[in-house]
């Protein structure tokens, strides 16, 4: 920053520090926010058709445009929104899903976010109000991206970076929900577009750079295959929670054993 009007010998940086003590962190928020926002852009392609498909399912089940949108604004968790949209089809009818059934399913599908928050809280230092805000927009995708790409941030991922990544999906998910709720019936389905493959491709892109060391590869294999097996009998969100916890336990146990062997050998 060149300022030719300043007197010779003027120390700009010390002036700035003294006059604007809060400018550092405050001005750093938006650049970090936009970096987080942009890092999610490759995932938009996969999100839009699914939000549209959710909205079409919800509308077909009898939800109004406002109710369809309200679920995306509040719950904001794709898999559980799809499940609920389907369950609402028989809502209030004999043999249909009950309110308790829909809420319990939602809880089971979304309990895995506890694990994401727990893992994120070790990487990012957040104040109490920041935690209240960041919690609302936490998703699989934002967690994965912040965990893997956030390491490239100077000093690790900040609140701005996390919120940018989270809101990137929130904005797209809600805009696409509205699009689907209003005119979704004429838009092509995710199956027709083949975009279902984008979600696993994105996560694979995050996983590949993490696969260093035998234990890590073993954990990924065990967790992935366990999830595949469990997914035949259990709902998706619960599968992620069980396989995720099981794989991490295996990793911790193998690490502990390796350390014990090293100590015994030393």
């Amino acid at each position: 920053m060149r300022t030719p009007l300043l007197p010779p010998g003027f120390n700009f940086s010390s002036y700035k520090l003294a006059a604007m003590p809060a400018s550092g962190p405050a001005s750093a928020f938006w650049p970090a926010f936009w970096r987080g926002f942009r890092v999610m852009i490759p995932l938009w392609l996969g999100m839009v058709p699914f939000a549209v498909a959710y909205a079409v399912t919800a509308r077909a089940s009898g939800l109004s445009v406002w109710e369809t949108q309200m679920m995306s604004l509040t719950v904001f968790a794709g898999a559980s929104q799809f499940a609920a949209a389907g369950l609402f089809a028989g809502y209030g009818m004999a043999g249909g899903a009950s309110a308790l059934g829909i809420v319990a399913t939602t809880f089971l599908l979304n309990a895995r976010h506890l694990l994401y928050g727990l893992s994120l809280s070790r990487q990012v230092t957040l104040t109490r109000p920041q935690r209240l805000i960041a919690a609302q927009f936490l998703t699989d995708e934002a967690y994965g991206m912040v965990t893997v790409k956030g390491g490239q941030e100077p000093g690790g991922p900040s609140f701005g970076y996390v919120l940018g990544a989270e809101l990137s999906l929130y904005v797209v998910w809600n805009a696409s929900t509205l699009l689907g709720a209003l005119g979704g019936a004429v838009l092509p389905s995710p199956e027709a577009l083949g975009v279902g493959v984008i979600f696993p491709l994105a996560f694979l892109g995050l996983l590949v750079p993490m696969l260093r060391g035998r234990v890590t590869v073993l954990v990924a294999l065990a967790s992935g295959l366990a999830a595949w097996g469990l997914s035949r009998v259990l709902p998706g969100g619960l599968v992620i929670l069980l396989a995720g916890v099981g794989g991490a336990l295996l990793g911790a146990w193998l690490t502990g054993r390796k350390t014990a062997v090293q100590e015994a050998g030393a």
């Binding site: 699989d140 954990v219 990924a220 967790s223 911790a252």
Partner: peptide, 15 residues
Amino acid sequence: LNFVPVSVIAALIVP
């Protein structure tokens, strides 16, 4: 906790 990311992400992909 160190193994949570790799474990969760693998569980999201394979099914």
